[in-house]
Design a protein around this nucleic acid. Structure first.
Length: 599
DNA sequence: TACGGTCACACT
DNA sequence: TAGTGTGAC
């Protein structure tokens, strides 16, 4: 990556924070006897000692693995301490971990520009502006650097790593003196992250690890490289080499069926191997009898080059709340009464959590969804049992009751289920029940006191900007015209570009699609799922044609210059060649300008 | 009949 | 929209 001042201006400092063996930390805080001994947190303990959901580093060192049951863990580590997750309403109750996580990310949110919680124990932070500010004052930088204990410019913590890792992962080994490098931004970021981690430790007692880099994908990739309780920096200069040797499945998004397919059918071993497929080849590439979708091809094409333009949002509250339970083996539910019994229990938990969301985040749900799995459906033909459908999984929704207490939720859910669960389903047995609340919207204050009225005014004037509040505020969604592939990646409507509105412009997130009213909606990055990467047999014939056809519709005027500039030169050439046939003269001028930045 | 309980999100 | 499926932890 070039170190032009333009690149430095655009560079972001994105952090991924990850709490170390979090459930264990929570249990240890409650019971210090568990400190420094091998221990694991298990869920339910009736079947083979329960399923392990968290492990201390001492237990990992003794050979215990997450895939083991509690009993297996005792075999390899006889003195392991097993702590059982509390239960409520006959199911595992994760409230204590959820709340502990919230306390951590509230601290993070107070200390960073943007904090986006992505799971019970992980979040992304964007500290670009803070890092830039720190970088602009070298004396201050050096003072805080000394206090933070961050080692700048030395290779450390890698004594046990192999030579390749030593070259790639430097723990905060960046040179901040040269203000014009992107690395200096990360160096300043390192100091800020160390301060945030110290604040979290101080306020909550929990330790976390962090990855610091220029985008979400890269920071997540390295946040676990020096666990526990350490942070790792990934310089942009090391990205290409790192990805060239990174096993494909290790990159976020490739860990599932997609990764398997690419490895099996295309002999791709490392992330970098994907680069040998051009964007167009990725789009047309056959994997078995299936074809990669073009919009996911663009995602892959960027990912294998270390490009990820997804922005960090400001949100620490969940967008949906759900709870459920599986009923394996003999516990499967075989009567509607039995189903109701558990829906009642789940409703108690959901109602409590909704109450909490209202108090804490002023959220109210609009939609209730129930989903269930049943066993196989079979019929008898000519005296033989024939399996018709295999397991069934379905979900149905209904409006959330105005007063979402347990009784009302259960009543609404059962109304749906009684229609849905026919005698055949009941005969097959229900193996899984989930209920959830979604479409969480920001509730208006209902009290009428003068202070509340004042608050209302304040919230109306400020709460529309996500960055002004750490609460997630649901914006009215508008149906965007869906665009795919290259068109989606490079086009933008004719609206003024606001360079300072966000720390960095996002590539696909910058794809703003005009709606009827001229409103703008941000289209987020396409996530690669096996579902959206491969055409299913039934839709193959029609959909593939429309996807591939997109390249012919692209014109130079639709190309987003800021997006184009960020692409590696080979991708730029590819895009150019795909539209060259209709290039107008004006475009030629632009083209020369662009090429001049990429020698 | 044994990797559970949750989340987010893409796509149709 | 509502429903289905994937992926991650």
């Amino acid at each position: 990556m070039s170190h032009t001042s333009k690149a430095t201006e655009r560079a972001r400092c994105v952090v991924h924070v990850d709490l170390d063996c979090f459930y264990v930390q929570v249990e240890r805080k409650m019971n210090p006897e568990l400190l420094k001994v091998p221990c694991a947190v298990v869920q339910y303990n009736k079947f083979q000692g329960g399923g392990i959901i968290a492990l201390s580093y001492e237990a990992k060192a003794r050979g215990v693995r997450r895939s083991m049951r509690g009993n297996d863990a005792r075999v390899v580590c006889p003195d392991i301490r097993l702590v059982t997750v509390p239960t409520a309403n006959e199911k595992a109750d994760l409230t204590r971990y959820r709340n502990a996580g919230s306390s951590v990310f509230e601290v993070c949110a107070r200390h960073s520009d943007l904090c986006e919680r992505t799971s019970i124990d992980e979040a992304y932070l964007d500290i670009t502006l803070q890092a830039r500010t720190l970088l602009s004052n070298m004396d201050e930088f050096k003072r805080r650097l000394r206090l933070s204990g961050v080692m700048i410019g030395t290779e450390s913590n890698l004594a046990d790593s192999d030579e390749f890792e030593k070259e790639i992962f430097w723990k905060d080994s960046l040179q901040p003196e040269n203000n014009d490098t992107q690395d200096s931004l990360l160096a300043a970021g390192s100091v800020i992250v160390a301060e945030i981690r110290a604040a979290v430790k101080d306020k909550t007692g929990y330790t976390l690890s962090a990855g610091i880099s220029h985008n979400k994908m890269l920071s997540k990739l390295v946040s676990g490289k020096n666990k526990p309780n350490k942070q790792t920096v990934l310089s942009s200069t090391k990205v290409e080499k790192l990805l060239s040797r990174l096993p494909l499945r290790d990159l976020n998004g490739f860990g599932g069926k997609l990764g398997d397919k690419l490895i099996d059918k295309c002999s791709i071993k490392y992330v970098g191997d994907l680069k040998k497929y051009s964007l167009m080849k990725l789009a047309k590439m056959a994997i078995g009898s299936e074809i990669v979708r073009i919009n996911s091809a663009t995602w892959m094409s960027q990912a294998c080059r270390g490009i990820c333009t997804e922005t960090v949002k400001s949100r620490i509250a969940a967008k949906s709340i759900s709870c459920g339970k599986t009923f394996r083996g003999p516990t499967r539910l075989r009567s509607i009464d039995n189903v109701k019994e558990y829906i009642d229990k789940l409703s108690i938990e959901l109602a409590e959590r909704l109450q909490n969301a209202k108090q804490k985040h002023r959220q109210v749900a609009k939609l209730i969804t129930v989903s269930y799995h049943t066993g196989s459906k079979t019929v008898k033909r000519k005296g033989q049992e024939i399996n018709l459908t295999g397991n069934i999984s379905k979900s149905r929704s209904c409006r959330c009751p105005a007063t979402p207490n347990a009784v009302n939720i259960s009543k609404a859910v059962m109304q749906v289920l009684e229609k849905e669960l026919d005698s055949e389903c009941i005969r097959a047995g229900v193996t899984c029940l989930y209920i959830g609340a979604s479409k969480l919207e920001n509730v208006r204050d209902e009290a009428t006191g003068i202070d509340t009225l004042l608050k209302k005014v304040v919230s109306a004037s400020t709460a529309t900007s996500e960055s002004d509040s750490h609460l997630y505020i649901q914006k009215p969604k508008q149906a965007a015209k869906r665009r795919t592939g290259i068109e989606q990646m490079f086009t933008r409507p004719l609206t003024p570009y606001e360079p300072n509105k966000k720390p960095n412009r996002s590539l696909q997130a910058a794809t703003r699609v005009s709606n009827d009213g001229g409103d703008i909606q941000q289209k987020e990055e396409t996530k690669p799922t096996i579902h959206n990467l491969f055409f299913r047999a039934k839709s193959k014939s029609t959909k593939s044609n429309s996807s591939i056809r997109i390249q012919n519709q692209l014109t130079w005027n639709q190309v987003d210059q800021t997006v184009f500039r960020e692409l590696p030169s080979e991708l730029q050439k590819e895009v150019m060649s795909s539209i060259r046939s209709e290039m107008p003269q004006q475009a030629t001028r632009r083209k020369r300008f662009k090429w001049s930045q990429k020698p």
